[in-house]
């Protein structure tokens, strides 16, 4: 099922949470809504679910206008950050709940409900735990129950709100891989919200980066990482360093010196240079970025060095091999291997 969000605006008590957002979600894809808190990503997810109603705009499931449907009618599967399992029901009862509450006309017979629930518990690798209560499971197990419960109603769209947010790092990584496998096997159109860029990059077919109630960029993880469309996306996805530069004669200048980086077709004037700290070459010679080391510390297999460039106190970070002898006050010259210029 494809989902189309068309010019949706959402206000809470006059406070705008989403401004005029449009997004096409393809059938069967796994798309991540990524952004800092307050960016509107959860609001967008809840609007798709029908847990909130848009102030303006429409949401289509396939060709049907879902905006007029209640959450019950939309047939979506929703997984909450804190699981939201029914504590007084066993695991099996939790998973079969969605089928049991159907009106008699569309409700499968009891045996069929049980068979499907057990099948799903098998899919999420929890066979044998069906008689337990949620309280007796670990966080990771609970979240898998929540997913099985959402899948039980054969949802048109699967929506996950920070599904791994409450779990610790180890379990998180495991579940991430496992969610990908489940998705590949079941093929549900899946939207998940996260503020963890690593999770989004690793897990999704496409990401949708959001900030302050707007969509900044939509694309595959590689596109978004390699070609960020705005300073925000550059800064939010992956590590980044930024410097104000001047463009003149198709070259970049800092403090009256050319740094050996071509400007392409960027017009003459002030500009902002962005590059990844690990994506630099150390150079000897004149045309380079040169700075004085202010701090230097080893982070695992690399050495993270902060440089002060020019007299205006601009600082950037670059990564060096961990055995590089960079000490404080020493001078280092480098050139970014890949970079992006944004208007000042």
């Amino acid at each position: 099922m494809e989902v189309r969000v068309a010019n949706v605006r959402k206000e809470f008590d006059r406070f705008p949470a989403l401004h005029d957002v449009s997004l096409d979600i393809r059938s069967g894809e796994l798309i991540a809504l990524l952004g800092p808190s307050g960016s509107g990503k959860t609001t967008l997810l809840r609007l798709i679910a029908g847990l909130e109603m848009p102030t303006a705009g429409k949401i289509f499931f396939g060709d049907t206008d879902a905006s007029e449907k209640t959450v019950q009618e939309r047939n979506i599967g929703f997984v909450f950050q804190h699981y939201a399992l029914f504590r007084h029901m066993t695991i099996l009862e939790n998973v079969s709940f969605g089928l049991k509450v159907r009106p008699r006309s569309s409700r499968p017979p009891a045996g069929e409900i049980r068979r499907r629930a057990m099948e799903l518990l098998d899919l999420v690798q929890l066979s044998g735990l069906e008689k337990r209560y949620p309280n007796q499971l670990s966080g990771g197990q609970r979240q898998r129950v929540a997913l099985a419960r959402a899948l039980a109603i054969e949802p048109a769209v699967l929506l996950l709100d920070e599904p791994f947010g409450a779990l610790d790092a180890q379990v998180r990584r495991e579940l991430r891989k496992w969610l990908r496998e489940i998705h590949d096997r079941t093929g549900h159109t899946t939207v998940f919200v996260t503020h963890d860029q690593e999770e989004a990059l690793e897990l999704s077919d496409r990401l949708c980066v959001m900030s302050q109630g707007k969509i900044e960029q939509v694309g595959t993880p590689d596109t978004v990482y390699d070609h960020p469309s705005s300073p925000f996306v550059f800064g939010f996805i992956g590590e980044s360093s930024e410097l104000p530069v001047t463009v003149e004669n198709n070259e970049l200048w800092i403090g009256g010196r050319a740094i050996g980086v071509p400007a392409g077709d960027t017009p003459t004037g002030q500009s902002r240079l962005f590059f990844r700290p690990h994506d630099v070459d150390l150079v000897e010679g004149d045309a380079a970025l040169a700075g004085v080391v202010t701090t230097s510390r080893r982070v695992g297999g690399t050495r993270r060095v902060e440089l002060e460039i020019g007299g205006d106190g601009h600082r950037v970070e670059i990564d060096l091999p961990f055995d590089h002898p960079a000490g404080e006050k020493s001078r280092i010259a480098f050139r970014p291997r890949r970079w992006t210029l944004f208007p000042a």
Binding site: A49, L51, V71, Q72, I76, H82, F97, V101, R102, R149
Partner: peptide, 20 residues
């Protein structure tokens, strides 16, 4: 969230109150 979960699974408000 528990009530929302119940609603997303298709339960009517009455079912959410009586069953959840």
């Amino acid at each position: 969230e528990v009530e929302e979960a119940s609603a997303t699974l298709g339960a009517s408000r009455f079912q959410t109150i009586t069953k959840v």
